[in-house]
Write a protein that binds this DNA or RNA. Structure first.
Length: 450
RNA sequence: GCCGCUAUCGUCUAGGGGACUAGGACGCCGCCCUCUCACGGCGGAAACCCGGGUUCGAAUCCCGGUAGCGGUACCA
């Protein structure tokens, strides 16, 4: 089995394109097939080295590797030209100067469902001669038998007047030469398939199997785009998603697995993946579900590994203890820093939280009591801190929240943070006491002398 | 217009003639856990596009309608 994937080199790896790449990967890896990476660049302007490198980088980030490639179609211009000449000689193709305008006029005259046929000329673009009768059909692995009447098919242009090959032609020749057995691509390519099939037919060659994947939509039912937030895997990466979660989530969008389980690694996915099970319906990309899955994957990562990724993501170091106490509370890498920055950069400024918490009766006294207790704790570990603080709650006969929340605001600046005992322990005695004193001083300044 | 395709909770899906009072997940609502936020647990609301067939029996098969989508380039 020879599988190929051919992302178009626009720089961004669209999420739909990523899913296509993933399905190709799953197909090849599940069957020990060969995976060929190809850059479909008969449009020279888009396939800049930078764009290509960005695509490759996104693919690597998703842990998708390939066996051969990347191969550029432009590298094969010579071969394409040879086949064009061959087809011209055999009469399967002809030159014509007909324009899109002419095609329209033709249909106006003979009916919209009539495929365009031109008279051969000495110059112009090269068109493939489509049979007048019969149909070009193929058994799509995901959608079943698909058929196009030849009579309604225009003679497709396979090479420009300057001799350069067009996509639908080049891609067929490349598939043929590479011995590709399976072509898995987006549904927007179905109507290209008969054109490519006709090329194989003209050459008397066996075409590969085709499988067309349903498209991915945004929440509004339209094609997924930047309007919907993240639309490329680069953007997903930037906002803190894990490659494991992205792979897992996009694989599920139409893979047709039984729904008893949804959490899969790449290799588990490859084991289960069946091309013929892929859904025919388009799916809506739901970032909320991705977030949820990302949280699961995040919590599953060993602390050291998570720490490593968060240090890369934030550009900070020495994050391990902060990671330990916050990993239950975050869903993406981006959620991390806002939750724990107070540990490193001091309490955040949140006057509202401050006012709200210290307006409660006994809040200030509870904070003072907590300070006294904490000053005595030895060693300054989580268990000891907890014991001391619970002692305060008991002695003052207070509701736990009335002791813990003032303390939390004192050390973190806000009412939301990791567990209070853990946070205090990570902060250490000196910092904790200093911050409590800071809060106390601030309170005094706010309301002098009762 | 023409060519092609699709149709189960808001979303992703299971379902391939009786096991369907239609299952799971995300989201939403309620309760529990609880120092906040989360995590976790329990419970709830929520769907077979419409109309005809076929059949003893249809979410499942067929036809029609409707709706949506893709393509319609000397782009990829």
């Amino acid at each position: 089995m020879q599988v190929r994937f051919a992302p178009s080199p626009t720089g961004a790896l669209h999420i739909g394109g990523a899913r296509t790449a993933l399905y190709n990967w799953l197909l090849a890896r599940g069957q020990d097939g060969t995976l060929v990476l190809r850059i479909e660049d008969t449009d020279r302007e888009r396939s800049t080295p930078e764009n290509v490198e960005q695509i490759l980088d996104a693919l690597r980030w998703l842990r998708l590797d390939w066996d051969e490639g990347p191969l550029f179609q432009s590298q094969r211009a010579q071969r394409h030209a040879e086949v064009v000449a061959q087809l011209l000689a055999s009469g399967h193709a002809y030159r014509s100067t007909a324009t899109a305008e002419d095609v329209r006029a033709y249909k106006q005259r003979l009916g919209a469902e009539r495929g365009f046929r031109a008279e051969p000329e000495r110059e112009g673009a090269v068109r493939l001669r489509v049979p007048d009768s019969g149909a070009t059909s193929f058994d799509d692995v995901v959608r079943g038998l698909t058929s196009f009447p030849n009579s309604s098919q225009d003679d497709p242009v396979i090479a420009r007047a300057d001799g350069s090959a067009l996509y639908n032609f080049a891609v067929a020749i490349d598939d043929l030469d590479a011995g590709i057995t399976h072509v898995v691509r987006g549904e927007d390519h179905v109507s290209n398939t008969p054109k490519q099939l006709l090329v194989f037919a003209a050459l008397g060659a066996d075409p590969p199997r085709y499988a067309h994947l349903p498209l991915l939509y945004g929440p509004d039912g339209r094609k997924l785009s930047k309007r919907h937030g993240a639309a490329s895997v680069q953007e997903l990466r930037a906002v803190g998603y894990l490659p494991e979660a992205v792979d897992n989530y996009i694989a599920l969008l139409g893979a047709g697995f039984a729904a008893d389980r949804e959490h899969f690694t790449l290799s588990e996915l490859a084991e289960r993946f069946r091309l013929e099970r892929v859904s025919k319906n388009p799916a809506v990309f739901d970032e909320r579900k991705l977030r949820h899955m990302n949280g699961e994957w995040l919590r599953e990562l060993p602390v050291d590994e998570l720490t490593h990724r968060l240090e890369q993501y934030t550009g900070r170091t020495e994050l391990r203890s902060a990671v330990e106490i916050s990993r239950e509370k975050i869903q993406t890498l981006a959620d991390f820093w806002p939750l724990v920055s107070f540990l490193f950069d001091g309490p955040v400024e949140d006057q509202q939280a401050f006012d709200k918490v210290f307006r409660r009766d006994g809040a200030v006294e509870n904070l003072v009591a907590a300070r006294d207790a904490l000053a005595q704790v030895e060693p300054f570990g989580v268990a000891e801190v907890e014991k001391a603080l619970r002692g305060v709650v008991e002695r003052r006969a207070a509701k736990p929240a009335n002791v813990f929340q003032p303390l939390r605001v004192a050390i973190a600046g806000t009412t939301v943070s990791p567990g209070i005992f853990e946070s205090v322990a990570v902060l250490g005695r000196e910092q904790t006491l200093r911050r409590i004193d800071g809060a106390l001083a601030r309170l005094k300044g706010a309301q002098p002398e009762g």
